[in-house]
Design a protein around this nucleic acid. Structure first.
Length: 508
DNA sequence: ATAGGGTTAG
């Protein structure tokens, strides 16, 4: 850049070779203003009719996120080649306009331009974002016409990612095994893909295979592994990853730091989570959200709200997920007024539209506090259609406060929205049982069987000395189940002595 | 002689 300036000052004109060089540097540093200056030079010296110059200009605006200019340059350019199209498609994908990207791809085909490997990689990433499997499969077939899929790691990786994001883990796995050359991105696509599908154990299996061939994980790998650890309660492995990060001088940047906070919080080590959070140089919405949700999950509502109150001070705007944490913290602590205030602030102060999760949290908040008719009213005034999550929250309130008739009418609504999940049936049958209406409870259990309702076993994970113990409701397979039961009974007796009545049936 | 576009994460 300095050399280029010197050149201009000395009165030497740039040519069609100079401009792409300097523009590449601008794109690398996201220096829009300098890029615009170069753009002005290119116009001044009459170089904008060259495809190379045009394409690098488009690319510079694309990485700086100014899609408007990309489109303008594309429209005005006298000559467009595969690179121009690819750059425009990529710009759409980057800005989250996946549909437009696909549209541009088909326009390109209509203009009788043949896409190459790099175009197809970008188009596949658009399919991933859309989660459109049939479109992705169609592109896969297009690729087979153009070239050999196995001839390019990038293409293979993009295909794995596409199948994973479209929910077809089997095809992704098959492709992965057939690829003759793999790199760390191929492994990462598999591992994070499985994590996104909730197949945490499978993700860790793939990670073990990766270690077996002694391929070094990078920060993308570790973020996915930490995510799996958090969801499986694998604190020991999570700690090991933390040590690995420190030892290998991997930058504890945003992604890694946030993943560590999330992992520790989900594993119940909330103090460790806070330690990592405090040690981070740069914190963003995700760091704060992980901490708030973590505190809420671990029953520390006040600390969740304290962290939330810090956000405007440091100038970080909360997002929808942050508010799920805030509202659930209020709900579990019975802070009705506080919760109401935050719910109102969501749209009024932060311009965020409440989603069904937020309405569900509010119904839960009101319902738990016994304000059932207000909770009902709240649902009636919802601008969006209430889903099973919202009705479920109200049903939960009926279960706590023994409202049988209301429960029955809610049950009817839930069955129409979501007939195959077990949660509501269990709640309702508990309501009947508490009201001594055993016949109705039995009838409901029968209906569950008839409708083939899927049962998700109540389950908790805990790790002791590196071994994960999984407890399912009614499961007696743990080797020390009798000892555990005895201990729990003793604990319940102690707790009741301190005036806690909620422990009577937690031993099951 | 010298130039441009690609995949993975919270």
């Amino acid at each position: 850049m300095a050399l280029y300036r010197e050149m201009i000052i000395k009165g030497i004109y740039p040519d069609t070779y100079t401009i792409p060089y300097v523009l590449k540097a601008c794109a690398g540093f996201r220096a829009v203003e300098e890029g615009q200056q170069i753009h002005a030079h290119a116009i001044k010296f009459g170089l904008v009719c060259n495809v190379y110059v045009l394409n690098t200009l488009m690319r510079m605006y694309a990485v700086c996120g100014i899609i408007h200019y990309v489109q303008k340059l594309f429209d005005e350019s006298p000559e467009r080649d595969v690179v121009s199209w690819t750059t425009r498609i990529q710009a759409f994908v980057k800005m989250g306009f996946a549909k437009e990207a696909i549209g541009a791809y088909f326009d390109m085909c209509r203009e009788k331009l043949r896409p190459d490997k790099r175009t197809l990689v970008v188009v596949l990433s658009a399919c991933s974002r859309l989660g459109d499997l049939s479109l992705g499969t169609q592109i896969h077939e297009n690729i087979c016409d153009v070239c050999d899929i196995y001839s390019d790691v990038f293409l293979g990786n993009a295909l794995i990612d596409m199948y994973m994001k479209c929910g077809d883990a089997d095809s992704a796995r098959q492709l992965f095994h057939e690829m003759p050359v793999k790199n760390v991105v191929s492994w990462n696509s598999m591992i994070s893909g499985l994590v996104q599908q909730g197949q945490y154990k499978e993700a860790l299996d793939v990670y073990n295979d990766m270690q077996r061939i002694r391929l070094k994980p990078d920060s993308v790998t570790l973020v996915a592994v930490l995510n799996a650890c958090g969801n499986l309660g694998k604190l020991e492995l999570g700690k090991w990853v933390h040590a690995y990060i420190d030892k290998n001088g991997i930058k504890a940047d945003g992604f890694i730091g946030n993943a560590l906070v999330d992992m520790y919080a989900k594993c119940g080590s909330i103090e460790q989570a806070f330690g990592v959070f405090q040690g981070m140089k740069f914190r963003d919405v995700f760091s704060y959200t992980a901490m708030i949700v973590g505190y809420a999950m671990n029953g520390e509502a006040q600390r969740a709200l304290d962290i939330f109150a810090e956000m405007p001070v440091v100038g970080i705007k909360p997002d929808e997920v942050t508010f799920v944490g805030v509202l659930s913290a209020c709900s579990h602590a019975g802070m009705v007024e506080e919760g109401r205030k935050h719910f109102e602030d969501m749209s009024r102060v932060y311009n965020l539209e409440p989603q069904t999760e937020h309405y569900g949290c509010m119904v839960d908040l009101l319902g738990r506090a016994g304000l059932i008719s207000e909770a009902e009213e709240f649902i009636e005034n919802m601008p969006i259609e209430p889903d099973a999550f919202v009705w479920g929250a109200l049903l939960g309130a009926c279960s706590i406060h023994g409202k049988v008739e209301l429960g029955e009418s809610i049950m009817k609504k839930i069955v129409t929205v979501e007939p195959v999940r077990d949660g509501a049936y269990i709640l309702m049958s508990n309501i009947y049982s508490s009201a001594n209406r055993w016949k109705d409870a039995l009838k409901l259990r029968k209906a569950m069987k008839e409708r083939k309702v899927k049962k998700t076993p109540g389950c908790s994970l805990i790790e002791v000395n590196g071994v994960v113990h999984e407890f399912r409701k009614g499961d007696k397979s743990h080797p020390k189940v009798e000892e555990l039961k005895k201990l729990l009974e003793e604990m319940a007796v102690h707790l009741r002595n301190y005036g806690d009545c909620s422990t009577s049936n937690f031993i099951s």
